[in-house]
């Protein structure tokens, strides 16, 4: 039975790690300012964070919480971990920013903004941070779907050598965050069952 060994949840009002709300006192409104506050709370010491678009920042933070709580070895390159995320709005939050740079009146497209106009960049950012050489995938669904999440994780495990999958829902649009990131182990005596009911329960907290 596959197990969830750690999970994080980030919404506009909540930051939860393994069921416990983090004690962050926000001074910013929901949105980019709050993501920066979570970053400082986590003391990640990863200045590249500030180059990322909001979706990557949010996905990075949710992943960081899970992986650090598991003491994941981010120094050793490892192919046995996969990163599989899904969301509703793709990279639309950043796409709007890039669109502003190519208006007829003020045409100055920025490569630093363009590179984040793909949602799977967040999986790349997490892979780089943690030296993850396994599969990285990104899917789009109209809304959060625990059953689909379980199918995606099964597919990742079907790829030879994959032992754990960092998976989840990484949605960010117009200042609103909705993320659930879970570490799923193929075999573990820790954690709780990776099933539809448990996934929905932690998503709804």
């Amino acid at each position: 039975m596959k197990k969830i060994t750690a999970y994080s949840r980030i919404t506009d009002s909540l930051v939860i790690l393994n069921g416990k709300p983090c004690e962050i006192t926000f001074s910013c409104e929901p949105g980019p300012g709050r993501l920066a506050e979570i970053y400082r709370f986590l003391e990640s010491g990863y200045p590249k964070f500030f180059k990322m678009d909001n979706l990557s920042k949010a996905g990075f933070l949710a992943s960081e919480m899970v992986l650090r709580s598991l003491h994941y070895d981010m120094e050793s390159p490892d192919e046995s971990t996969a990163v599989v995320f899904a969301n509703r709005s793709s990279s639309l939050d950043n796409d709007k920013r890039f669109q502003e740079t190519i208006s007829r009146e003020d045409y100055f497209p920025s490569p630093a903004v363009f590179v984040y106009t793909l949602p799977n960049i967040v999986t790349g950012e997490v892979a780089i941070r943690n030296k993850i050489l396994g599969e990285t995938s990104f899917f789009i669904l109209e809304s959060f779907d625990a059953e689909k999440m379980m199918i995606f994780v099964d597919w990742a495990f079907a790829s030879a050598g994959t032992r754990r999958v960092l998976c989840g829902w990484t949605e960010y649009l117009d200042g609103h965050s909705d993320l659930l990131v879970m570490m799923v182990e193929k075999e573990s005596d820790k954690g709780f069952d990776f099933n539809k009911q448990n996934i929905n329960n932690i998503y709804r907290t």
């Binding site: 509703r88 709005s89 793709s90 639309l92 793909l118 949602p119 799977n120 990285t136 995938s137 990104f138 899917f139 789009i140 669904l141 109209e142 779907d145 689909k148």
Partner: peptide, 24 residues
Amino acid sequence: HLWHTAGLLAAHFNNPNLPLTVTN
């Protein structure tokens, strides 16, 4: 939205399943 585009694809064929979008 890409999920909407995928929805149009399935709907064109009167397919009842939720289509999947891969964007990698």
